[in-house]
Amino acid sequence: MGEEFTHLTDSGVHMVEVGAKPDQKRRAIASGKIFLDEKTIKMIQSEEIKKGNVLTTAQIAAIQAVKNTSSIIPLCHPLSLTGIEVDFDVNPTFITCTCAVNTLGKTGVEMEAIT
């Protein structure tokens, strides 16, 4: 059982031991599209949303989520992150969000970028 999924063993689950791995610069990038009404996108662009600049708020929320990934997703290692970038590309009917996460460590930051 443990050969296919690194976190599953014959006796249950575990957080994978990475202590013997060397520290390396690691970077992961994840992106997704958020589809909205054209009217809503125009309101976001002209900052007409009553809550203020929603993209700045979303950047802050994304950074906070990345920093807390090991608390949100079971079996993720807590990581020392060296950088987080969250960017938006606004189009007429959708917004593309891209998150890049960097670390110098023993394990990757893919789950942090996705989170």
Rank of each mutant, 00 (worst) to 15 (best):
I84D: 05
N102D: 13
C99G: 00
N102G: 05
C76H: 08
K106Y: 00
T107Q: 03
T93Y: 10
T82R: 04
T107N: 04
C97G: 13
F88P: 15
L104G: 03
L81W: 04
S80R: 01
H77R: 08
S80C: 14
F88M: 15
H77F: 04
I95W: 00
V86C: 15
V90Y: 00
L104A: 07
T98L: 07
G105F: 00
T107H: 03
V90G: 00
I72K: 15
I73S: 09
L104C: 07
P74C: 15
T103E: 07
N102H: 08
T82C: 10
P92C: 05
H77G: 15
C97E: 11
A100S: 09
I95F: 01
V86Q: 14
H77I: 14
P74G: 14
T96H: 05
C76V: 06
L79D: 11
F94A: 06
T82F: 06
G83A: 10
T93E: 04
N91P: 03
T93M: 05
V86E: 13
I84S: 05
G108C: 05
G83S: 07
E85Y: 02
C99S: 01
L81R: 02
P74D: 15
P74Q: 12
F94C: 05
F94R: 04
V86L: 08
G83M: 05
L75G: 09
P78C: 04
C76P: 13
L104N: 07
P78M: 09
D87N: 15
G105H: 01
K106M: 04
P78Y: 02
